[in-house]
Design a protein around this nucleic acid. Structure first.
Lengths: 400, 400
DNA sequence: CTGAAAGCGCTAACAA
DNA sequence: TTGTTAGCGCTTTCAG
């Protein structure tokens, strides 16, 4: 009788799972043979294999992934760190990551930070402990020097251990830090959106929402400003109100702003969630969208098509970003081979484009006044979604 | 020099992570002491501890969760198996699971089946291999004898190994199979919804969507039928059209049905996603909701409040279900202690209630006709969401 | 308070 | 084709 089995027997009849040793004993082979049958990566005589398979079945044997990971083979997992699984922005990226991981034979571990940078760091560590093949850090980063350094350190640790840190939708943390990155043209999308609004005659555009210290917010505002400047429209500071990325924020803040008497003819919501709240606030104030006020969002989550009026927004290839993130980092993919060559260069940027729907109208000349057009949402013929700008994906896109 | 280190040296200068041995050597203590410092569950002299902590930092040591799991302590992970992380129904449950897991100091592994029962089974195995403390199986189950047996077998294996299979929103797989379960009053919600429609004078209600062989669909239709029978309304078979749980299905099928000349005054969409598609089909056909046709959904996902008209639906405590699922199964929670006592009894059912919004109107007497009310979506005063029925959560609810 | 040593379950040389 | 045997990195008695 093998040592392990003997020890188990000595421990008494407590709950115990079958191990390779048990299977081996039952099939009257060695543990190595069992391993070979299980992994199917080595020739095993048919009869032997069948005996082992029977034993496995009879014993209800289930391999131990930890022992397996410990004994050499990779853990076959990838980790993803997001703020919130429910937020469609993150959910879609997570789906991409999960799918690509699963296609690469990996399990996906999801962690939610709820916006706390410390939790984010802690999760990177946790995932590192799990020996994830890749850790994907999703969404805007807080622009904090010390924080970036912490991330950089972890990226190096991960890299030293054969794993990869992938930055998805956030800026690099340093010139020669071994991270991979999947970006989207955040600034360009914002530029195109504001330009669209400008073209429609809006010159007082309220920028609403998004945590002020987040890279995402910074980039979107940058694009917004660039468009403004290009048309020589002054960028009034009282028209920029950052805060959060939620419907609640959009609703609350816009309601306050409306009450304060601030004037504007269009609202650039920092993302679609904020736009949802903003729309509600506008409705409650008796303002029609787009007749009285135009409204745009960002991200193009599915709800944008369901809202009435349907929301004009910027399409971001969320799921695709997630897929690329793991493709870049996980062994067994074409992209991966290259990625390892370019220490800090493994970055790709996907294009964004605006999607014109029904929430923007040309600015009316007078202060108030009926525009004889149809009300949205009823028998009006469906306008097909129009693509304003659309660049082939992995190409940097700069509408101008 | 320690054995491991020697072996490593022999292996050459390849990429290698620091281990407890390395840390021990550097701090000039034994590996046992390092372990004690790391886990902080044992008294260690202050000076020693500090030496170890320094060594850890200097070496960039990161513990190996697999070795840890292997050496006895649990893997500290829970697994969740859903169809799709993007679908709000699953996303919300997943959020509950993730939060509760994280509160219990566990990592959460998410797997997506995309509706394939075989993938589901495969993931249970995978999660078992990972030695997850709990595996949460979410959403309706395919009513298949053999399949239920497979699930039952895995539940027993898991249980034998000290883990738990939690059925979330799906029926038990057998009398004395050691599963835990978190249900919601699916049938009751459907009953209440149909009853509401009936009360408004609708007697030809189209039931639309949901995979026909899914337990969820079966239960919802059962509630629908019960309400119909109770009021003596015949349940016309041509008014039940199952299929899928997506907007696309809702849109396509309803468009066909409308073209076919089928008559009905209300649509009971199998869930909110189907309702979204149905609404679009209705609009395209020039029918107003709720003036011409009433529409209800199920699940009460956030989008239901954003749609115009806002959707009347059944609220399901999704996130709460997720939380309960892990509470029940994971060591270190109050609920958990009891759960282990009751082999197959660890089940709780949360209540559902309908949420009345703007998508249902009393059936009009004549065939066509203007109802002088305002069009939805503009300056109309906001009707606050009304709660029709609402039972305290963990109590079985049966509107009647 | 600290060290020595025995595994946890599996894989991967290396032999046979 | 199959068996033997080292470990993988950590926790945990059992001594000291």
């Amino acid at each position: 009788m093998a040592k392990a089995a003997a020890a188990a027997a000595a421990r008494g009849p407590e709950r115990r799972r079958a191990t390779v040793i048990d299977v081996a004993a039952r099939a009257e082979v060695s543990s190595a043979t069992v391993s070979r049958v299980l992994n199917g990566n080595y020739p095993v005589a048919r009869a032997t294999r069948e005996r082992v398979e029977d034993a496995v079945r009879e014993l209800g044997y289930v391999a131990n992934a930890h022992a397996r990971a410990l004994a050499g083979t990779s853990s076959r997992t990838v980790g993803i760190i997001v703020q919130d699984v429910v937020d469609p922005f993150f959910a879609h990226i997570a789906r991409g990551v999960e799918r690509a991981a699963s296609e690469a034979g990996r399990l996906c571990m999801v962690c939610c930070t709820h916006g706390d940078p410390r939790r984010e760091l802690a999760f990177v560590d946790l995932l590192h402990e799990q020996r994830a093949d890749a850790v994907v850090l999703v969404g805007g980063a807080h622009s904090d020097r010390a924080y970036a350094r912490e991330v950089a350190r972890r990226a190096r640790d991960l890299h030293a251990g054969g794993a990869r840190l992938v930055l998805c939708g956030r800026p690099s943390v340093g010139r020669d830090v071994p991270t991979l990155s999947v970006e989207y043209d955040n600034e360009g999308g914002a530029f195109a959106l504001t330009d669209h609004l400008l073209t429609q005659g809006h010159d007082r555009i309220l920028y609403l929402g998004g945590p002020p210290d987040l890279s995402t917010t910074r980039d979107r505002i940058a694009g917004h400003r660039r468009a403004l400047e290009l048309r020589g429209v002054p960028c009034a500071p009282e028209l920029v109100h950052t805060g959060a990325f939620s419907p609640v924020f959009g609703h609350r803040r816009l309601t306050e702003l409306l009450a304060s008497g601030l004037t504007f003819s269009a609202v650039f919501a920092a993302n679609d969630m904020v736009a949802i709240g903003a729309l509600q606030a506008l409705e409650e104030a008796g303002l029609r969208v787009p007749q009285d006020v135009s409204l745009v969002g960002y991200d193009d989550v599915p709800t944008a098509q369901v809202m009435r009026p349907r929301l004009t927004t910027v399409h971001v290839p969320l799921e695709e970003m997630g897929r690329h993130a793991v493709r870049l980092a996980v062994p067994g993919t074409d992209a991966e081979a290259d990625a390892w060559q370019q220490p800090a260069g493994g970055g790709l940027t996907l294009g964004t484009h605006i999607v014109v729907r029904d929430s923007v109208a040309a600015r009316r000349p007078g202060p108030e006044g009926a525009r004889g057009t149809a009300r949205p949402g009823t028998t009006r013929p469906q306008t097909q979604t129009q693509t304003q700008t659309d660049t082939p994906s992995p190409v940097r896109h700069r509408p101008m």
